[in-house]
Nucleic acid binder design. Sequence first.
DNA 1: CGGCTAGTTGACTTCATTCAACGCTGGTGG
DNA 2: CCACCAGCGTTGAATGAAGTCAACTAGCCG
Lengths: 234, 234
Amino acid sequence: MDRVTPQAKDMTVLRSLPLFKAVSDATFARLAESVRFDRYVKGETIVRQGEKAQWVIVVLEGYVKLSRTAANGEETLIHIFGRGETIAESVAVLGDNHTTTAEATGPTRIVRMPAHVVAQAARDAPELALAILSESSAKIWALMDEIEALKAQTADQRVLRFLLSLCAQESGPVETRLPYTKGVIAASLGLKQETLSRSFARLKSVGVEIDGRKATILDPRKLAQEIERLNRIV
Amino acid sequence: MDRVTPQAKDMTVLRSLPLFKAVSDATFARLAESVRFDRYVKGETIVRQGEKAQWVIVVLEGYVKLSRTAANGEETLIHIFGRGETIAESVAVLGDNHTTTAEATGPTRIVRMPAHVVAQAARDAPELALAILSESSAKIWALMDEIEALKAQTADQRVLRFLLSLCAQESGPVETRLPYTKGVIAASLGLKQETLSRSFARLKSVGVEIDGRKATILDPRKLAQEIERLNRIV
DNA sequence: CGGCTAGTTGACTTCATTCAACGCTGGTGG
DNA sequence: CCACCAGCGTTGAATGAAGTCAACTAGCCG
């Protein structure tokens, strides 16, 4: 982990985050005072399961994976956070302990604010409390999406959904980079790496080309159709 | 659905709910004014996916299942709420639309408060906003638990966990009632009814006896051991 | 160059689903 | 009062999707 001295442009980025959108200048200024910027490399732990939540963390760059380690040592990936997303905001504000571990999946930049400062600000400024609630609510939807996918969709359908989420446009050929390693992608979709690999191979037939970290999708609409088609078969 | 006139004792129950624990008498009184009590029978819909959230709902009695219906008409059970739990609190306060449908799994009593009243109260009284945040946070943990179970555990392990959650005591023989039909239990665990039935049959060997709605567990500790043992095999 | 990590591929296994038949129970109407 | 039906649950046999195990390749860093 590397502490970084904040730059002026970082503050403007910060101000534009969803968490601070509806917040007054005064409240923002108060929070900005105690803000800290950190840089992590792949595999470093950002927060550890069981520790008391001391910080509210926002991802500026890179991807952070949340996972939970069971008594037997097995680790389960719960969710992945990207740019602009907030980690542990509710836990930190309420003063609870982390129930998950957060780890950088690659080079990552984050911002952290002391929990007690945010908690006090939330008490003083209801619009901040509501903004945090809004973040938590978004997280609930995302988790519900995940549960729905795990319960109702096959491996190929989940992979297709994931690929679709990478496409910036709705049609035409799209070329992107996979945001993290295939092992992490597999875990995030509730699959084994081998299964993901086979799925990618199968999906060549609907215009998906994966070459290392480079992903080429001939036509996103075709992927959506394929998800539908796989539903019908069942 | 049946509207019920509130009784004095209902108000004391209400006051003791987690949502109102930390709330001042003044704030509570304000909310209590516009409270409404409703009674539902099995299968009735309480809130519908896609509708604007108009109410904050608290379950007083019975169980409510949250589910999501995909484009192809398939319904996936996301989560089940019981006594004292709050439904759609964040969505209602933020003025968003419901992303899930809530349905009574049996005879159910609920309390509802108009969303705008709660939203205004949350703006005026930060302790209410934080209480709602606390509820949302609890919901996030519960959903993460579910994801972990779906990704990392077999059918038998999930069934064992569920049975353990029904046990009031840690040891000795426990006798309880299954809280809802086996079909609903199966769906909540991400299983088919047939699979649950077979699982129950297998679990006789660790002292689980299911007879209709009546469940007898010889020794909860043995169930916990069995979950562990099933992990080791893999 | 060797040693790592990430990823692929093949053969085999297994857990859960599907499909289908059947059993039990409680309610309804003749 | 009984007959019949619907809803809920069980059981068996066959199928299939994903996991496991293992061997192997490609790229990368020191």
